[in-house]
């Protein structure tokens, strides 16, 4: 049984079809990348999966349960964690309290007290390396620290599936490599499935995911092994454009050193 299953999910905003009949299956413990250019519907798909808004058509199953119409706050305790593209810390609370909030209302919600949650928080803060900033107000962290804090907060929820929205945007290559290593490690240690969404940093995708789904204009373009997907001509076309006759002609013109308008 797949952990997450989408069946022909469609989400419209007025006349705009943001997500167009997307089907997807994710197994427990899998690492999958969702790739697509700006505006291809990745974030909307995330929002449908974790219940920010319901889809117009199609069904969402999590752990064998139909969650299509379940409100967002009931999905987190089932094991759906999420980080945001632009980090959304609870600014006035300390880093420790932020992460503790994750533990308090995640899958352990009924089992842990406030004190337990703070202890769980300490563990995940150490895991992401924010120990020195533990008692700082979350709003005062740097953007990268905020991202790490969000990851710790999502992990403290003890999710079965973690949705990561552009976890590596704005990072330099070294940070990206570190992050990829880190995600692979926590995937094994915590035994969670991770869906990582990436707009254009192929370095991140190639190193991270075993499987990639490429989206374009709301629809699923391809769902295949990472290498296969990233070299597929349709994917190249989505990112780099179609080699038109005119551009071919222009490149020939260029080679021959002729004037453009000829």
């Amino acid at each position: 049984m797949p952990l997450l299953k989408l069946e022909n999910v469609t989400k419209r905003f007025g006349g705009l079809v943001a997500v167009d009949k997307v089907s997807l299956e994710i197994q427990a413990g899998e690492l999958i990348g969702i790739v697509g250019p700006n505006g291809s519907g990745k974030t909307t798909l995330f929002n449908v999966i974790n219940g920010v808004y319901p889809p117009e058509e199609g069904k969402v199953f999590f752990d064998g349960k139909n969650i299509t119409r379940l409100p967002a706050y009931k999905r987190a305790p089932l094991g759906l964690g999420r980080t945001f593209q632009i980090p959304r810390p609870f600014g006035s609370a300390s880093v420790r309290e932020n992460v503790a909030i994750g533990a308090m209302f995640g899958t352990l919600a009924d089992k842990v007290s406030v004190d337990d949650s703070l202890e769980i928080a300490d563990r995940y803060i150490e895991l992401v390396g924010l120990e020195p900033h533990k008692d700082k107000e979350a709003g005062t962290l740097t953007p990268v620290e905020k991202k790490m804090m969000e990851i710790a907060r999502a992990l403290a929820m003890r999710p079965k599936l973690l949705l990561m929205d552009e976890a590596m945007a704005g990072m330099n290559p070294k940070d990206i490599d570190d992050m990829v290593k880190f995600l692979k490690r926590i995937k094994d240690e915590e035994n969670i499935a991770i869906v990582s969404m990436v707009e254009h940093i192929m370095r991140a995708v190639a190193g991270l995911a075993e499987r990639v789904m490429v989206m374009n204009q709301g629809a699923k373009l391809i769902d295949a092994k990472t290498e296969e997907a990233l070299t597929d001509p349709r994917v190249v076309e989505v990112y780099l454009g179609h080699p038109t006759d005119k551009s071919k002609w222009r490149s020939e013109v260029w080679k021959e050193g002729k004037d453009w308008d000829e």
Binding site: N50, G51, V52, P71, A72, Y73, K74, R75, A76, P77, R82, F84, R88, P89, F90, G91, S92, A93, I101, G102, F105, G106, A109, R153, M157
Partner: peptide, 13 residues
């Protein structure tokens, strides 16, 4: 108080 929508996603009713 800080971010009501994020709170919902975190599992808070």
């Amino acid at each position: 108080r800080e971010d009501e929508d994020a709170a919902k996603v975190m599992g808070i009713n």
